[in-house]
Design a protein around this nucleic acid. Structure first.
Lengths: 245, 245
DNA sequence: CTTTGTATGTGCGGCACCGCACGGATTGTA
DNA sequence: TACAATCCGTGCGGTGCCGCACATACAAAG
Protein backbone atom coordinates (compact mmCIF):
# COMPACT_ATOMS: atom_id res chain seq x y z
CA UNK A 1 0.00 0.00 0.00
CA UNK A 2 2.85 2.39 -0.67
CA UNK A 3 0.56 3.87 -3.30
CA UNK A 4 -1.40 5.60 -0.54
CA UNK A 5 1.62 7.74 0.19
CA UNK A 6 0.56 10.26 -2.37
CA UNK A 7 1.65 13.85 -2.38
CA UNK A 8 -1.00 16.52 -2.25
CA UNK A 9 0.33 18.00 -5.50
CA UNK A 10 -0.55 14.92 -7.50
CA UNK A 11 -4.17 14.84 -6.40
CA UNK A 12 -6.32 15.15 -9.48
CA UNK A 13 -9.51 16.03 -7.69
CA UNK A 14 -10.02 19.75 -7.29
CA UNK A 15 -11.79 19.62 -3.97
CA UNK A 16 -9.14 17.50 -2.32
CA UNK A 17 -6.38 19.51 -3.93
CA UNK A 18 -7.87 22.68 -2.44
CA UNK A 19 -7.41 21.44 1.11
CA UNK A 20 -4.68 22.96 3.25
CA UNK A 21 -1.79 20.59 3.79
CA UNK A 22 -2.62 19.83 7.42
CA UNK A 23 -6.17 18.80 6.71
CA UNK A 24 -5.09 16.86 3.68
CA UNK A 25 -2.64 14.90 5.78
CA UNK A 26 -5.45 14.16 8.17
CA UNK A 27 -7.75 12.80 5.48
CA UNK A 28 -5.13 11.28 3.22
CA UNK A 29 -4.76 7.94 5.06
CA UNK A 30 -8.48 7.30 4.69
CA UNK A 31 -8.45 7.80 0.94
CA UNK A 32 -8.16 4.88 -1.38
CA UNK A 33 -7.71 5.27 -5.11
CA UNK A 34 -10.07 2.86 -6.84
CA UNK A 35 -10.89 1.97 -10.42
CA UNK A 36 -14.46 2.55 -11.49
CA UNK A 37 -15.83 0.57 -14.38
CA UNK A 38 -18.23 1.87 -16.96
CA UNK A 39 -21.84 1.42 -15.85
CA UNK A 40 -20.80 0.37 -12.37
CA UNK A 41 -23.54 1.25 -9.90
CA UNK A 42 -22.05 3.02 -6.90
CA UNK A 43 -25.31 3.81 -5.18
CA UNK A 44 -28.53 1.97 -5.48
CA UNK A 45 -31.76 3.81 -4.78
CA UNK A 46 -32.73 4.29 -1.16
CA UNK A 47 -29.76 2.32 0.05
CA UNK A 48 -27.55 3.60 2.80
CA UNK A 49 -24.35 5.05 1.39
CA UNK A 50 -21.19 3.29 2.43
CA UNK A 51 -18.61 5.38 0.58
CA UNK A 52 -18.03 8.86 -0.68
CA UNK A 53 -16.14 9.35 -3.95
CA UNK A 54 -13.84 12.10 -5.20
CA UNK A 55 -13.39 11.34 -8.91
CA UNK A 56 -10.14 12.03 -10.68
CA UNK A 57 -10.55 10.68 -14.20
CA UNK A 58 -13.92 9.00 -13.77
CA UNK A 59 -17.27 10.64 -14.30
CA UNK A 60 -20.32 9.77 -12.27
CA UNK A 61 -23.89 10.70 -12.91
CA UNK A 62 -26.92 10.69 -10.68
CA UNK A 63 -29.90 9.08 -12.31
CA UNK A 64 -33.52 9.17 -11.42
CA UNK A 65 -35.87 6.53 -12.69
CA UNK A 66 -39.38 7.73 -13.28
CA UNK A 67 -42.53 5.68 -12.85
CA UNK A 68 -42.68 5.32 -16.61
CA UNK A 69 -39.30 3.61 -16.50
CA UNK A 70 -37.44 6.46 -18.18
CA UNK A 71 -34.16 7.21 -16.50
CA UNK A 72 -32.84 10.73 -16.57
CA UNK A 73 -29.82 12.50 -15.24
CA UNK A 74 -30.18 15.05 -12.46
CA UNK A 75 -26.54 15.67 -11.73
CA UNK A 76 -23.06 14.86 -12.84
CA UNK A 77 -19.72 15.00 -11.17
CA UNK A 78 -16.10 14.50 -12.08
CA UNK A 79 -12.78 15.86 -10.98
CA UNK A 80 -14.40 19.15 -9.97
CA UNK A 81 -16.64 17.59 -7.39
CA UNK A 82 -17.64 14.69 -5.25
CA UNK A 83 -20.32 12.09 -4.89
CA UNK A 84 -21.95 11.97 -1.50
CA UNK A 85 -22.92 15.31 -0.07
CA UNK A 86 -25.84 13.56 1.56
CA UNK A 87 -23.52 11.77 3.96
CA UNK A 88 -22.59 14.90 5.83
CA UNK A 89 -25.68 16.91 5.07
CA UNK A 90 -28.25 14.68 6.65
CA UNK A 91 -29.94 11.44 5.97
CA UNK A 92 -27.59 9.35 3.89
CA UNK A 93 -30.14 7.99 1.51
CA UNK A 94 -31.78 9.41 -1.54
CA UNK A 95 -34.11 8.31 -4.28
CA UNK A 96 -31.45 8.20 -6.93
CA UNK A 97 -28.92 5.91 -8.47
CA UNK A 98 -25.28 6.80 -9.03
CA UNK A 99 -23.73 5.24 -12.11
CA UNK A 100 -20.25 5.48 -13.56
CA UNK A 101 -20.63 7.26 -16.83
CA UNK A 102 -17.01 7.21 -17.80
CA UNK A 103 -14.55 4.71 -16.51
CA UNK A 104 -11.60 6.00 -14.59
CA UNK A 105 -10.40 6.46 -11.08
CA UNK A 106 -11.68 8.08 -7.94
CA UNK A 107 -10.62 8.47 -4.35
CA UNK A 108 -12.95 6.54 -2.14
CA UNK A 109 -13.47 7.17 1.54
CA UNK A 110 -15.78 5.59 4.09
CA UNK A 111 -18.88 7.57 4.93
CA UNK A 112 -18.08 7.37 8.62
CA UNK A 113 -14.61 8.80 7.99
CA UNK A 114 -16.10 11.65 6.02
CA UNK A 115 -18.46 12.52 8.83
CA UNK A 116 -15.54 12.55 11.23
CA UNK A 117 -13.38 14.69 8.97
CA UNK A 118 -16.31 16.97 8.41
CA UNK A 119 -16.45 17.74 12.11
CA UNK A 120 -12.71 17.95 12.68
CA UNK A 121 -11.50 19.83 9.60
CA UNK A 122 -12.88 23.28 9.17
CA UNK A 123 -11.74 23.85 5.61
CA UNK A 124 -12.87 20.45 4.50
CA UNK A 125 -16.23 21.26 5.95
CA UNK A 126 -16.49 24.57 4.18
CA UNK A 127 -15.33 23.15 0.88
CA UNK A 128 -17.93 20.39 1.09
CA UNK A 129 -20.64 22.89 1.95
CA UNK A 130 -19.67 25.21 -0.84
CA UNK A 131 -19.58 22.33 -3.25
CA UNK A 132 -23.10 21.51 -2.14
CA UNK A 133 -24.09 25.00 -3.12
CA UNK A 134 -22.63 24.54 -6.59
CA UNK A 135 -24.55 21.30 -6.80
CA UNK A 136 -27.79 23.12 -6.06
CA UNK A 137 -26.91 25.65 -8.74
CA UNK A 138 -26.22 22.85 -11.19
CA UNK A 139 -29.46 21.01 -10.54
CA UNK A 140 -31.46 24.25 -10.66
CA UNK A 141 -29.99 25.02 -14.02
CA UNK A 142 -30.89 21.54 -15.26
CA UNK A 143 -34.47 22.18 -14.26
CA UNK A 144 -34.45 25.38 -16.25
CA UNK A 145 -32.65 23.79 -19.17
CA UNK A 146 -35.13 20.95 -19.34
CA UNK A 147 -37.96 23.41 -19.56
CA UNK A 148 -36.58 25.95 -21.97
CA UNK A 149 -33.89 24.61 -24.24
CA UNK A 150 -33.77 22.44 -27.33
CA UNK A 151 -32.04 19.11 -27.71
CA UNK A 152 -29.45 20.80 -29.93
CA UNK A 153 -28.55 23.25 -27.19
CA UNK A 154 -28.48 20.62 -24.50
CA UNK A 155 -26.27 18.38 -26.58
CA UNK A 156 -23.73 21.18 -26.94
CA UNK A 157 -23.89 21.88 -23.25
CA UNK A 158 -23.32 18.25 -22.44
CA UNK A 159 -20.35 17.95 -24.77
CA UNK A 160 -18.74 20.99 -23.18
CA UNK A 161 -19.23 19.68 -19.66
CA UNK A 162 -17.77 16.43 -20.81
CA UNK A 163 -14.74 18.14 -22.21
CA UNK A 164 -14.16 19.98 -18.95
CA UNK A 165 -13.91 16.66 -17.23
CA UNK A 166 -12.01 14.62 -19.78
CA UNK A 167 -9.89 17.33 -21.36
CA UNK A 168 -9.44 15.42 -24.56
CA UNK A 169 -11.10 16.51 -27.78
CA UNK A 170 -11.91 12.97 -28.76
CA UNK A 171 -13.79 10.57 -26.58
CA UNK A 172 -15.99 7.50 -26.71
CA UNK A 173 -19.66 8.18 -26.57
CA UNK A 174 -22.61 6.83 -28.53
CA UNK A 175 -25.75 8.73 -29.36
CA UNK A 176 -27.62 6.20 -27.29
CA UNK A 177 -25.61 7.04 -24.18
CA UNK A 178 -26.19 10.74 -24.69
CA UNK A 179 -29.90 10.18 -25.15
CA UNK A 180 -30.06 8.41 -21.81
CA UNK A 181 -28.41 11.31 -20.07
CA UNK A 182 -30.49 13.99 -21.72
CA UNK A 183 -33.67 12.00 -21.37
CA UNK A 184 -34.59 12.15 -25.06
CA UNK A 185 -34.81 9.69 -27.95
CA UNK A 186 -31.68 8.34 -29.51
CA UNK A 187 -32.89 9.57 -32.91
CA UNK A 188 -33.24 13.12 -31.61
CA UNK A 189 -29.61 13.03 -30.58
CA UNK A 190 -28.59 11.65 -33.96
CA UNK A 191 -30.37 14.46 -35.76
CA UNK A 192 -28.90 17.11 -33.49
CA UNK A 193 -25.43 15.62 -33.85
CA UNK A 194 -25.80 15.54 -37.64
CA UNK A 195 -26.58 19.25 -37.62
CA UNK A 196 -23.47 19.95 -35.56
CA UNK A 197 -21.41 17.84 -37.92
CA UNK A 198 -22.72 19.75 -40.92
CA UNK A 199 -21.71 22.98 -39.23
CA UNK A 200 -18.22 21.59 -38.75
CA UNK A 201 -18.49 21.85 -34.99
CA UNK A 202 -17.98 18.17 -34.24
CA UNK A 203 -17.06 14.98 -36.02
CA UNK A 204 -18.14 11.51 -35.03
CA UNK A 205 -18.37 7.93 -36.10
CA UNK A 206 -19.47 4.79 -34.37
CA UNK A 207 -19.15 5.86 -30.79
CA UNK A 208 -16.25 8.28 -31.12
CA UNK A 209 -16.88 11.98 -30.93
CA UNK A 210 -14.34 14.68 -31.71
CA UNK A 211 -14.83 18.31 -30.83
CA UNK A 212 -13.59 20.57 -33.61
CA UNK A 213 -14.89 24.08 -33.02
CA UNK A 214 -15.19 25.22 -29.42
CA UNK A 215 -16.44 28.68 -30.25
CA UNK A 216 -19.15 27.17 -32.37
CA UNK A 217 -19.96 24.73 -29.63
CA UNK A 218 -20.26 27.51 -27.08
CA UNK A 219 -22.48 29.67 -29.23
CA UNK A 220 -24.71 26.72 -30.11
CA UNK A 221 -25.08 25.76 -26.47
CA UNK A 222 -27.57 27.37 -24.15
CA UNK A 223 -26.34 29.73 -21.47
CA UNK A 224 -26.70 27.00 -18.85
CA UNK A 225 -23.18 25.74 -19.37
CA UNK A 226 -21.56 29.05 -18.57
CA UNK A 227 -23.98 29.92 -15.82
CA UNK A 228 -23.14 26.73 -13.96
CA UNK A 229 -19.43 27.13 -14.55
CA UNK A 230 -19.43 30.74 -13.39
CA UNK A 231 -21.30 29.88 -10.23
CA UNK A 232 -18.88 27.08 -9.47
CA UNK A 233 -15.96 29.43 -9.92
CA UNK A 234 -17.49 32.12 -7.78
CA UNK A 235 -18.67 29.91 -4.94
CA UNK A 236 -15.38 28.07 -4.68
CA UNK A 237 -13.12 30.97 -5.63
CA UNK A 238 -11.98 31.18 -2.04
CA UNK A 239 -10.32 27.80 -2.46
CA UNK A 240 -9.87 27.17 -6.14
CA UNK A 241 -8.11 29.92 -8.03
CA UNK A 242 -9.64 29.39 -11.42
CA UNK A 243 -11.68 26.83 -13.28
CA UNK A 244 -8.77 25.01 -14.84
CA UNK A 245 -9.25 24.03 -18.43
CA UNK B 1 -42.36 44.67 21.04
CA UNK B 2 -44.14 42.41 23.48
CA UNK B 3 -45.15 40.47 20.39
CA UNK B 4 -41.67 38.98 20.25
CA UNK B 5 -42.39 37.11 23.45
CA UNK B 6 -43.85 34.25 21.53
CA UNK B 7 -44.19 30.78 22.89
CA UNK B 8 -42.57 27.99 20.97
CA UNK B 9 -45.91 26.23 20.68
CA UNK B 10 -47.38 29.01 18.61
CA UNK B 11 -44.63 28.99 16.03
CA UNK B 12 -46.20 28.21 12.69
CA UNK B 13 -42.99 27.34 10.90
CA UNK B 14 -42.16 23.66 11.06
CA UNK B 15 -38.41 24.04 11.14
CA UNK B 16 -38.45 26.50 14.02
CA UNK B 17 -41.08 24.48 15.83
CA UNK B 18 -38.84 21.43 15.62
CA UNK B 19 -36.08 23.08 17.64
CA UNK B 20 -35.50 21.96 21.21
CA UNK B 21 -36.65 24.55 23.73
CA UNK B 22 -33.15 25.66 24.72
CA UNK B 23 -32.05 26.38 21.18
CA UNK B 24 -35.33 28.04 20.41
CA UNK B 25 -34.86 30.36 23.36
CA UNK B 26 -31.46 31.20 22.01
CA UNK B 27 -32.72 32.11 18.56
CA UNK B 28 -36.08 33.55 19.54
CA UNK B 29 -34.88 37.07 20.41
CA UNK B 30 -33.39 37.43 16.94
CA UNK B 31 -36.61 36.52 15.18
CA UNK B 32 -38.95 39.18 13.98
CA UNK B 33 -42.37 38.41 12.58
CA UNK B 34 -42.84 40.46 9.42
CA UNK B 35 -45.60 40.89 6.86
CA UNK B 36 -44.69 39.97 3.32
CA UNK B 37 -46.63 41.53 0.50
CA UNK B 38 -47.56 39.81 -2.71
CA UNK B 39 -44.84 40.17 -5.34
CA UNK B 40 -42.43 41.65 -2.84
CA UNK B 41 -38.88 40.88 -3.90
CA UNK B 42 -36.91 39.55 -0.95
CA UNK B 43 -33.73 38.77 -2.83
CA UNK B 44 -32.50 40.35 -5.97
CA UNK B 45 -30.16 38.41 -8.22
CA UNK B 46 -26.52 38.25 -7.23
CA UNK B 47 -27.08 40.53 -4.27
CA UNK B 48 -25.74 39.70 -0.88
CA UNK B 49 -28.47 38.31 1.34
CA UNK B 50 -29.26 40.35 4.40
CA UNK B 51 -32.00 38.26 5.93
CA UNK B 52 -33.15 34.69 6.21
CA UNK B 53 -36.89 33.96 6.29
CA UNK B 54 -38.94 31.25 7.97
CA UNK B 55 -42.42 31.61 6.46
CA UNK B 56 -45.53 30.92 8.47
CA UNK B 57 -48.46 31.85 6.26
CA UNK B 58 -46.52 33.35 3.37
CA UNK B 59 -45.19 31.47 0.38
CA UNK B 60 -41.98 32.36 -1.36
CA UNK B 61 -40.68 31.14 -4.67
CA UNK B 62 -37.23 31.20 -6.18
CA UNK B 63 -37.26 32.44 -9.73
CA UNK B 64 -34.67 32.23 -12.43
CA UNK B 65 -34.76 34.56 -15.36
CA UNK B 66 -33.42 33.08 -18.56
CA UNK B 67 -31.60 34.95 -21.28
CA UNK B 68 -34.78 34.88 -23.30
CA UNK B 69 -36.51 36.81 -20.54
CA UNK B 70 -38.70 33.93 -19.44
CA UNK B 71 -38.85 33.58 -15.69
CA UNK B 72 -39.36 30.16 -14.23
CA UNK B 73 -39.60 28.75 -10.75
CA UNK B 74 -36.88 26.50 -9.42
CA UNK B 75 -38.03 26.18 -5.85
CA UNK B 76 -40.77 27.09 -3.48
CA UNK B 77 -40.97 27.33 0.24
CA UNK B 78 -43.59 27.95 2.88
CA UNK B 79 -44.21 26.94 6.44
CA UNK B 80 -42.33 23.68 5.89
CA UNK B 81 -39.08 25.37 5.06
CA UNK B 82 -36.92 28.43 4.95
CA UNK B 83 -35.44 30.89 2.52
CA UNK B 84 -31.71 31.29 2.73
CA UNK B 85 -29.78 28.06 2.98
CA UNK B 86 -27.01 29.80 1.06
CA UNK B 87 -26.21 31.99 4.05
CA UNK B 88 -24.85 29.14 6.10
CA UNK B 89 -23.84 26.87 3.28
CA UNK B 90 -21.31 29.10 1.62
CA UNK B 91 -21.28 32.12 -0.56
CA UNK B 92 -24.39 34.11 0.23
CA UNK B 93 -25.26 35.03 -3.28
CA UNK B 94 -26.99 33.18 -6.04
CA UNK B 95 -28.29 33.82 -9.51
CA UNK B 96 -31.91 33.81 -8.53
CA UNK B 97 -34.65 36.08 -7.35
CA UNK B 98 -36.89 35.35 -4.38
CA UNK B 99 -40.42 36.67 -4.73
CA UNK B 100 -43.40 36.47 -2.40
CA UNK B 101 -45.91 34.34 -4.15
CA UNK B 102 -48.57 34.50 -1.50
CA UNK B 103 -48.83 37.28 1.00
CA UNK B 104 -48.57 36.37 4.64
CA UNK B 105 -46.10 36.39 7.44
CA UNK B 106 -42.64 35.05 8.06
CA UNK B 107 -40.04 35.15 10.77
CA UNK B 108 -37.11 37.15 9.65
CA UNK B 109 -33.60 36.90 11.06
CA UNK B 110 -30.36 38.61 10.14
CA UNK B 111 -27.96 36.54 8.07
CA UNK B 112 -25.18 37.19 10.57
CA UNK B 113 -27.36 35.92 13.41
CA UNK B 114 -28.14 32.78 11.45
CA UNK B 115 -24.49 32.07 10.90
CA UNK B 116 -23.87 32.49 14.60
CA UNK B 117 -26.77 30.26 15.58
CA UNK B 118 -25.63 27.75 13.03
CA UNK B 119 -22.31 27.37 14.82
CA UNK B 120 -23.68 27.45 18.35
CA UNK B 121 -26.82 25.36 18.09
CA UNK B 122 -26.29 21.79 17.05
CA UNK B 123 -29.89 20.90 16.36
CA UNK B 124 -30.50 24.10 14.48
CA UNK B 125 -27.51 23.23 12.35
CA UNK B 126 -28.71 19.74 11.63
CA UNK B 127 -32.23 20.87 10.86
CA UNK B 128 -30.93 23.45 8.41
CA UNK B 129 -28.69 20.90 6.77
CA UNK B 130 -31.42 18.36 6.49
CA UNK B 131 -33.73 20.96 5.08
CA UNK B 132 -31.07 21.67 2.48
CA UNK B 133 -31.21 18.03 1.51
CA UNK B 134 -34.96 18.20 1.03
CA UNK B 135 -34.39 21.27 -1.10
CA UNK B 136 -32.02 19.35 -3.32
CA UNK B 137 -34.60 16.60 -3.61
CA UNK B 138 -37.24 19.14 -4.51
CA UNK B 139 -35.18 20.84 -7.20
CA UNK B 140 -34.07 17.50 -8.65
CA UNK B 141 -37.67 16.45 -8.94
CA UNK B 142 -38.51 19.70 -10.69
CA UNK B 143 -35.80 18.98 -13.23
CA UNK B 144 -37.35 15.57 -13.84
CA UNK B 145 -40.87 16.93 -13.90
CA UNK B 146 -39.95 19.59 -16.43
CA UNK B 147 -38.57 16.95 -18.73
CA UNK B 148 -41.17 14.25 -18.45
CA UNK B 149 -44.57 15.48 -17.38
CA UNK B 150 -47.43 17.30 -19.03
CA UNK B 151 -48.84 20.66 -18.10
CA UNK B 152 -51.93 18.91 -16.77
CA UNK B 153 -49.87 16.84 -14.37
CA UNK B 154 -47.76 19.75 -13.26
CA UNK B 155 -50.80 21.87 -12.64
CA UNK B 156 -52.20 19.21 -10.32
CA UNK B 157 -48.89 18.92 -8.56
CA UNK B 158 -48.71 22.64 -8.05
CA UNK B 159 -52.23 22.86 -6.67
CA UNK B 160 -51.45 20.12 -4.17
CA UNK B 161 -48.26 21.78 -3.00
CA UNK B 162 -50.18 24.97 -2.66
CA UNK B 163 -52.80 23.31 -0.53
CA UNK B 164 -50.15 21.87 1.77
CA UNK B 165 -49.00 25.38 2.48
CA UNK B 166 -52.30 27.23 2.64
CA UNK B 167 -54.54 24.50 4.00
CA UNK B 168 -57.67 26.05 2.60
CA UNK B 169 -59.53 24.52 -0.30
CA UNK B 170 -60.21 27.88 -1.87
CA UNK B 171 -57.54 30.40 -2.68
CA UNK B 172 -56.78 33.29 -4.99
CA UNK B 173 -54.77 32.40 -8.03
CA UNK B 174 -55.08 33.31 -11.67
CA UNK B 175 -54.09 31.15 -14.60
CA UNK B 176 -51.54 33.78 -15.46
CA UNK B 177 -49.81 33.43 -12.11
CA UNK B 178 -49.70 29.67 -12.46
CA UNK B 179 -48.29 29.94 -15.95
CA UNK B 180 -45.42 32.06 -14.64
CA UNK B 181 -44.56 29.48 -12.04
CA UNK B 182 -44.77 26.51 -14.36
CA UNK B 183 -43.03 28.32 -17.16
CA UNK B 184 -45.74 27.70 -19.75
CA UNK B 185 -48.28 29.79 -21.62
CA UNK B 186 -51.30 31.17 -19.84
CA UNK B 187 -53.53 29.50 -22.42
CA UNK B 188 -52.01 26.11 -21.70
CA UNK B 189 -52.94 26.53 -18.06
CA UNK B 190 -56.46 27.58 -18.99
CA UNK B 191 -56.93 24.49 -21.12
CA UNK B 192 -55.54 22.20 -18.44
CA UNK B 193 -57.68 23.85 -15.78
CA UNK B 194 -60.75 23.49 -17.96
CA UNK B 195 -60.12 19.77 -18.23
CA UNK B 196 -59.85 19.49 -14.46
CA UNK B 197 -63.07 21.45 -14.06
CA UNK B 198 -64.87 19.17 -16.47
CA UNK B 199 -63.72 16.19 -14.41
CA UNK B 200 -65.13 17.83 -11.31
CA UNK B 201 -61.72 17.98 -9.68
CA UNK B 202 -61.58 21.73 -9.24
CA UNK B 203 -63.79 24.76 -9.67
CA UNK B 204 -62.63 28.25 -10.50
CA UNK B 205 -63.67 31.65 -11.62
CA UNK B 206 -61.81 34.90 -12.07
CA UNK B 207 -58.82 34.26 -9.92
CA UNK B 208 -60.39 32.01 -7.29
CA UNK B 209 -59.68 28.32 -7.35
CA UNK B 210 -61.45 25.70 -5.24
CA UNK B 211 -60.20 22.17 -4.85
CA UNK B 212 -63.08 19.70 -4.89
CA UNK B 213 -61.69 16.20 -5.33
CA UNK B 214 -58.36 15.45 -3.71
CA UNK B 215 -58.22 11.85 -4.83
CA UNK B 216 -58.78 12.95 -8.38
CA UNK B 217 -56.16 15.63 -8.00
CA UNK B 218 -53.66 13.13 -6.70
CA UNK B 219 -54.26 10.63 -9.44
CA UNK B 220 -54.08 13.32 -12.11
CA UNK B 221 -50.82 14.65 -10.73
CA UNK B 222 -47.47 13.14 -11.57
CA UNK B 223 -45.62 11.18 -8.94
CA UNK B 224 -43.36 14.15 -8.25
CA UNK B 225 -45.65 15.56 -5.60
CA UNK B 226 -45.56 12.47 -3.45
CA UNK B 227 -41.91 11.76 -4.09
CA UNK B 228 -40.92 15.18 -2.80
CA UNK B 229 -43.25 14.94 0.15
CA UNK B 230 -42.03 11.50 1.12
CA UNK B 231 -38.40 12.59 0.97
CA UNK B 232 -39.15 15.60 3.12
CA UNK B 233 -40.84 13.41 5.68
CA UNK B 234 -38.04 10.88 5.71
CA UNK B 235 -35.15 13.30 5.84
CA UNK B 236 -36.69 15.37 8.61
CA UNK B 237 -38.45 12.52 10.41
CA UNK B 238 -35.90 12.78 13.18
CA UNK B 239 -37.31 16.20 14.06
CA UNK B 240 -40.76 16.46 12.56
CA UNK B 241 -43.10 13.65 13.46
CA UNK B 242 -45.31 13.69 10.41
CA UNK B 243 -46.07 15.88 7.42
CA UNK B 244 -48.99 17.69 9.03
CA UNK B 245 -51.90 18.23 6.74
C1' DC C 1 -75.57 52.01 -16.54
C1' DT C 2 -71.52 52.52 -19.04
C1' DT C 3 -66.74 52.13 -19.29
C1' DT C 4 -62.47 50.06 -18.55
C1' DG C 5 -59.68 46.53 -17.08
C1' DT C 6 -58.84 41.86 -15.91
C1' DA C 7 -59.66 36.83 -16.37
C1' DT C 8 -60.71 33.24 -19.22
C1' DG C 9 -62.18 30.65 -23.75
C1' DT C 10 -61.04 29.30 -28.42
C1' DG C 11 -59.06 28.68 -32.80
C1' DC C 12 -55.10 28.33 -36.13
C1' DG C 13 -50.68 27.41 -38.04
C1' DG C 14 -46.13 25.98 -36.70
C1' DC C 15 -42.55 23.44 -34.50
C1' DA C 16 -40.05 20.19 -31.68
C1' DC C 17 -40.09 16.00 -30.15
C1' DC C 18 -42.31 11.48 -29.73
C1' DG C 19 -42.87 6.30 -30.97
C1' DC C 20 -42.17 3.28 -34.43
C1' DA C 21 -40.15 1.05 -38.30
C1' DC C 22 -36.65 -0.09 -41.25
C1' DG C 23 -32.34 0.38 -44.00
C1' DG C 24 -27.47 1.06 -44.33
C1' DA C 25 -22.88 1.03 -42.56
C1' DT C 26 -19.12 -0.39 -39.75
C1' DT C 27 -17.05 -3.48 -36.42
C1' DG C 28 -16.11 -7.66 -33.96
C1' DT C 29 -16.30 -12.71 -34.07
C1' DA C 30 -16.59 -17.45 -35.83
C1' DT D 1 -15.29 -14.83 -45.46
C1' DA D 2 -19.66 -14.96 -43.50
C1' DC D 3 -22.42 -13.62 -39.76
C1' DA D 4 -24.07 -11.11 -35.90
C1' DA D 5 -24.09 -7.08 -33.28
C1' DT D 6 -23.80 -2.40 -32.81
C1' DC D 7 -24.23 2.30 -34.35
C1' DC D 8 -26.29 5.61 -37.04
C1' DG D 9 -29.61 7.69 -40.84
C1' DT D 10 -34.23 8.55 -42.31
C1' DG D 11 -39.06 8.77 -42.88
C1' DC D 12 -44.00 8.97 -41.18
C1' DG D 13 -47.89 10.03 -38.45
C1' DG D 14 -49.11 11.79 -33.96
C1' DT D 15 -49.12 14.93 -30.02
C1' DG D 16 -48.21 18.59 -26.90
C1' DC D 17 -47.06 22.98 -26.54
C1' DC D 18 -45.85 27.25 -28.82
C1' DG D 19 -47.03 32.27 -30.46
C1' DC D 20 -50.58 34.93 -31.92
C1' DA D 21 -55.07 36.81 -32.43
C1' DC D 22 -59.40 37.64 -30.92
C1' DA D 23 -63.89 36.75 -28.57
C1' DT D 24 -66.24 36.55 -24.31
C1' DA D 25 -67.37 37.26 -19.53
C1' DC D 26 -67.24 39.24 -15.30
C1' DA D 27 -65.88 43.16 -11.96
C1' DA D 28 -64.82 47.43 -10.20
C1' DA D 29 -65.15 52.38 -10.86
C1' DG D 30 -67.14 56.38 -12.80
Amino acid sequence: MSKSKKAKETIQNQLLAALPQSEFDNINPKLKLVDLELNEVLWEMEEKREYVYFPTTAMICLLYESEEGVSIEVGMTGRHGMLGVVTFIGDSRMAKRAVVQREGQAYRIKATDVEKAFLECKDFQEICMRYTQTLIAQISQSAICNRLHSVDQQLCRYLLVNYDNIRTKTFSMTHEQISNVLGVRRESVSVAAARLRESGIIAYSRGKITLLDFKGLLSSACECYEVVKDQYDRILSKYISVHSK
